[in-house]
Design a protein around this nucleic acid. Structure first.
Lengths: 195, 195
DNA sequence: AGGCAACTTTACCCATTGCGCAAATTTGTG
DNA sequence: CACAAATTTGCGCAATGGGTAAAGTTGCCT
């Protein structure tokens, strides 16, 4: 990776951190793009080169984390079936990152819950990844991408993730995120038809 | 319902229809709030009294339909268990509305797929209803609202809905929506752990 | 019927935003 | 070192969301 791309990634990260910090400090609506740009030492116009809006800047960390998750899924052993692969990849992701990352995640998700514009972007980002996950599931189950089943499973998986984080926050983070996550995935894996 | 509220609902509907029509004709980005307001015979400022933005105006029909769905769920017999209640309520909803409603739905969803801003709002709206559905599920299963299980089931249900519509569109509406929907719900109901 | 209180619509205004454009600056390479 | 490619920046503009207060409607009471 050349200096060019490294510097760009660095700037993007700096802008993200500035946006997140200012939003936590002042509230999302009280933060202007100009303020974020100033805090990151770039011009207002350059901010637009990196992010389409404040929301994307604040949620950039989320995007990265879920991207990691997708890669984790791809890295699972080739023979493993789809659902276990999804469950273990998410467990690994959680194990790989310390508690400070959890707190940042909590912070972002809390913000997203309180502010509709953030929630909207967050969900839209997840929707894009749903397709990628469905492709991976299809490959593992030997089905065509456009089939119903892989897409249902991918959607179920992401939904379980979202619910787990929501419940974890509602319980004031009293148990480890990984535990809630596995419980959520277990519930989702079970048969619903009998209830 | 007094004249006041009736007239307000009428105006809201008119604005929605104008927004949807113009968006289909010209494309979402080519439509300004002013144009929609003109088409609905209200001022630009009044538009803001009804909707927070173009997106909400275009997607208002979606909101209504899902609201109907929630009410349908509440109307299911009290003894019925949660998952069957969800499945049958959605089947009823599609049975109740003709094919012209399906086409409108297809139109809106197609727009939402192509335009990120619309997709984002659509998902955010669904997220709000997820909570309401979870409450209903909890009541039917005799569990507390904040528990994991009702929320997982509610999320799974809505995810199955979304996937069904997406697949239905991908298949160019070659089979009836109700059929795809039931298939999607069936897949979601099944046990994932074995695959 | 008339009038009064509550509510809605409207016009005017301003801060903020996203983006096109072109000039200035920085970076990679022969 | 010079030059092409990429990046940053300033400027401008149309669009937007929302505050405020005036003008217009509607519901209700006497």
């Amino acid at each position: 990776m050349g200096l060019r791309e490294r510097k760009k990634a660095e700037t993007r990260q700096a802008v993200h951190e500035a946006a997140l910090r200012l939003t936590v400090e002042l509230g999302f609506d009280a933060v202007t793009v100009e303020a974020v740009a100033d805090a990151a030492n770039i011009s207002r116009r350059t901010f637009s080169n990196y992010f389409a809006g404040k929301e994307d800047a604040v949620l950039y960390g989320e995007e990265q984390r879920i991207q990691d998750l997708v890669e984790g899924i791809r890295r699972r052993p080739a023979g493993e079936r789809a659902w276990p692969a999804l469950c273990r990849a998410s467990a690994e992701l959680y194990a790989a990152q310390g508690k400070e990352a959890d707190r940042e995640w909590a912070m972002r998700t809390r913000l997203a819950r309180r502010h509709p514009a953030l929630l909207a972007r967050q969900l839209a980002n997840q929707a894009l990844l749903e397709t990628e996950i469905a492709v991976e599931v299809a490959a593992r189950e030997g089905l065509a991408d456009h089939t119903l089943r892989p897409r249902v499973m991918a959607a179920a998986f992401l939904a379980a993730l979202r619910v787990a984080i929501a419940v974890w926050l509602d319980e004031r983070e009293s148990r480890p995120l990984g535990e809630v996550l596995q419980a959520s995935l277990a519930e989702m894996g079970e048969d619903f038809t009998g209830s």
